[in-house]
Design a binder for these strands. Structure first.
Lengths: 233, 233
DNA sequence: TTAGCTGAGTGACTACAATCACATAGTAGC
DNA sequence: GCTACTATGTGATTGTAGTCACTCAGCTAA
């Protein structure tokens, strides 16, 4: 399918580029659609594209030697993934799969590399982005160190709450919340354990489910206390 | 203490820089020595230096909310740490502590930033380095997903084995191996558990301790099998 | 409507790693 | 040498999360 420069400029990281550059990139890029559970990027393969997510939700996942799934991060619309090879020409370290049906734009890595040479702004953005990834991985790692399981779940939930709700301890809504299974693989837990924690949170009126695509966080303050360990579940 | 350009050029990442640049950097840098357990970098602080390790061994560590220590990575001589702020001016995400007495060179981040503008080679190196860090964090994360504890320990041990010993399944030696405690915090285990796994490995003649600073891996093939799960302990 | 699928809730049981509480061995400093 | 400290080894006990085996709810596609 045809990619227009306008489509590309919908992505915050590409927006600063000059129109001519966007036009060139657009010509070389392609739209790819994925069904739920589709494999967007394959681990160990030198993917020659950076994947920009237009619609849907992706997840970076890895597998342990014994086949267990490990959740790494989520990709939200406007964001991108598969950019690691931009820096070291190495293979994609993890799988990226579609959690929902997704629309993406694949931009060839080599073209993007040329663009960064002329546009330091993009290079800088990519660097910041990679740094953010390291910070996220580090935070997630220290989350896994928590010996208390419900605290781990609450911390993860807390990270999904919007920034301003976190700041002002307001009640808020999480759109398209991850399934229990998805949370479980992020936190090294079994699905059942996550389910049991959610049960407690719900009976305590801290969170409330609303259909499959909404999760209300009614009592942000309590969730925060559980997340930072000042209160036990 | 005075830093000479020669000292700086001992670091692989700085070696490619022109002598004049090295001389300038050397003037602005300083040697800092740390005792065992000394804090090299503090989490949450905007450290204005990149730390190059000359002698000794450092470890990046974080702490969970409840105060538990979490091991993230090791820094070996010739390598550096604290470079994340180069990309996004953000604070240092984790602590770095000295595992042994250590000699380091602190290079001001701002000077290094200026140098990268004139020397794309350094910029590229930094990017590769950050990418390597992401890969390492990802690998470590999937290690934590292993449900079998001895496999986890063996995997970690396997990562400490030198590359060519890994390739050819030769017996090899790990210099200054991490203590059981250091391994434990990297793998989310208790010290005792690590100790018990080592006991089994030793009675099976797979590894052998030689004083405090050497660990012989006598049976690399067995270690590999244990690491990849084709054999159980 | 029905079938089929995925996600979620729940009880019973169990394995296993953490914890505690020591003992012992190295090493470093004086 | 002696002392102090850190690293390591080991048993007993216990808590707790994983696993298994279900049921149930909600969605969607024939």
């Amino acid at each position: 399918m045809q990619v227009t420069p306008e489509l590309l400029s919908a992505f915050p990281s590409l927006k600063p580029l000059p129109p001519a550059t966007l036009a060139r990139l657009a010509q070389e890029s392609e739209v790819r659609k994925f069904a739920r559970r589709g494999v967007v990027m394959t681990a160990g393969v030198r993917e020659e594209f950076v994947c920009f997510l237009f619609e849907g939700r992706l997840q970076g996942v890895d597998f342990t030697i014994d086949g267990r799934e490990v959740g790494l991060y989520f990709v939200e619309p406007g964001d991108f993934c598969g950019e690691l090879g931009m820096f070291d020409h190495g293979p994609q370290p993890e799988f990226v799969i579609a959690l929902t049906a997704a629309v993406t734009v694949f931009v060839p890595m080599e073209s993007l590399r040329l663009v960064t040479m002329e546009n330091p702004v993009l290079l800088k953005l990519l660097g910041q982005r990679l740094a953010a990834r390291v910070r996220q991985l580090t935070r997630q790692r220290s989350l896994l160190g928590l010996p208390n399981i419900s605290q781990r779940v609450c911390c993860q939930l807390w990270l999904l709450v919007s920034d301003d709700a976190r700041q002002h301890l307001q009640s808020s809504v999480i759109n398209n919340p991850p399934t229990h299974m998805e949370i479980a693989i992020m936190l090294n837990l079994s699905r059942e354990t996550v389910s049991r924690v959610f049960q407690i949170l719900q009976t305590r009126n801290i969170v409330r489910r609303d259909g499959t695509s909404l999760l209300h966080v009614s009592d942000s303050a309590a969730l925060k206390r559980l997340a930072d360990g000042s209160e036990e579940l």
